[in-house]
Amino acid sequence: MEDVTLEKAIETPQSDYEKPAILYIDDEEDNLIVFKSAFRRHYSVLTAKSGEEGLEILKGQDVSVVITDQRMPQMTGVQFLKNLPDENDMIRMILTGYSDMESIIEAINTGKVYRYITKPWDKNELKITMDNAIEAFHLRRTNKHLIEELKEANEVLEQKVIERTLEVSQQRDEIEKLILNILPEEVAQELKEKGEATPRFYECATVLFTDFIGFTNIAEGLSPQALIEELNKYFMVFDSIVEKHNLEKIKTIGDAYMCAGGIPVENNSHAVDAILAAIEIQTYMQEVNQKREATGQPKWELRIGIHSGPLVAGVIGSKKFAYDIWGDTVNIASRMESCGEGGKINISNFTFDLVKDWFSCLYRGKVAAKNKGEVDMYFVESEVERVA
């Protein structure tokens, strides 16, 4: 096979679309002609007679390499290169004699010049230098695109992080709301900070129980779905009333509803608060039953029992946290409910002593309570009118 000389390799033509664009600037027409003739087979050669003309060409051309003579009237080669935009990717080279080396070195040090070429230039050496410059241009352009893509990817990632952070924050808020629906705020905060909530003893709190009379008979006449919807409707109103009167809902057990006052934050009004809530609940149920009777439906008669005394409240276990209360006070409150009557509020003697200045109550005498013997009980009749 015949050896391919460097001269032949230089003269090998390329298709137009593969030719990189090179701008050559020189104020001498002959130099422009020689340069274009030497390299037009390999590059798309653009020429200009001055720096000003070169700047105009660059406005409409994507040029890979620009080569300029140093000594030109009005604008030197270094001045021309300094006028080029910094963001332009093109490779900048300059033709110079030894007498201009000081200004050329300064331009190189400031990053304005990629290479300098001494006069007279050698065609083969200049071709190699320009090919290296074009390769550097492509690397520079590729790096620029990669940086832009990386920047765009970072912006997208940052936006996703912002969106995910917002989503996590919203989820956290929703979780906290759900927790607060299950646990008192003070208990939830302690659980979040310590990972556990210590049960707490209360010297005096008030427990309220409600229960529907004849619930089994009512349930037999309703579908399971209708029964749950009906109970849910009533209990949601109870929730609102209980919250209004500063009581803490504990739980529902079937058709029974349980709440307490004076927990988790102690106060001196818990017994009064509980009876005010009980009166409002019974008033609501009376309104419900009037409407049900008008349409021929059976009544939902409600018993309410209240007792005050010491108890323990808190969260136990490590799964499915639930705020609950324990102690004999809870048991007696349950007996107050079961020993009561429909539409009435039955309270113990202990609770009566706490609220007798606030409510008119009817003494029932000693009433037998399961496992408690005979217990003094009272029906709450009305609030006592107080002089302002």
Rank of each mutant, 00 (worst) to 15 (best):
F321R: 00
V207K: 01
P310L: 08
L46A: 03
G340M: 06
G343R: 04
T68V: 06
D211H: 10
K19Y: 07
N31W: 00
F80N: 04
R141V: 15
K291N: 14
I108T: 08
K320Y: 11
F379N: 08
L231K: 01
Q286F: 14
I253K: 05
D255W: 03
V387P: 00
Q171G: 02
F352V: 03
T68W: 00
V34Q: 05
N268Y: 03
T351G: 07
V237E: 14
V288W: 01
N349M: 12
R386L: 14
A21P: 00
N83H: 12
A368V: 13
V242L: 08
G111H: 02
M258S: 07
L150M: 14
K251W: 06
I306Y: 11
G51P: 12
G343C: 00
H138I: 10
I10K: 12
K144E: 09
E148N: 09
P224G: 03
E152G: 02
A313L: 04
I228Q: 07
K49C: 07
T165G: 05
T206K: 01
L55G: 01
H270I: 13
R40I: 05
L95P: 03
Q74K: 14
D16S: 15
Y17M: 04
A322K: 10
M90Y: 13
G342L: 08
I332T: 12
A274M: 08
L208R: 09
I275H: 07
I263G: 09
E148Q: 12
L84E: 11
E167R: 04
P184T: 12
F359D: 13
G195E: 03
E2L: 09
Y363D: 15
L46E: 09
N132Y: 09
T329R: 02
E287L: 08
D211F: 11
K119M: 07
I316Y: 04
S103H: 09
C204A: 15
M336L: 11
I325H: 05
E174W: 04
Y378D: 03
E102P: 01
E11K: 10
L55V: 04
A153K: 10
E152F: 14
V187A: 12
T118F: 06
L166Y: 07
G314K: 13
E7M: 06
D353S: 11
D30Q: 06
I306E: 11
V330I: 10
L46M: 13
Y24E: 00
E337R: 10
Y323Q: 06
I213E: 15
D324S: 07
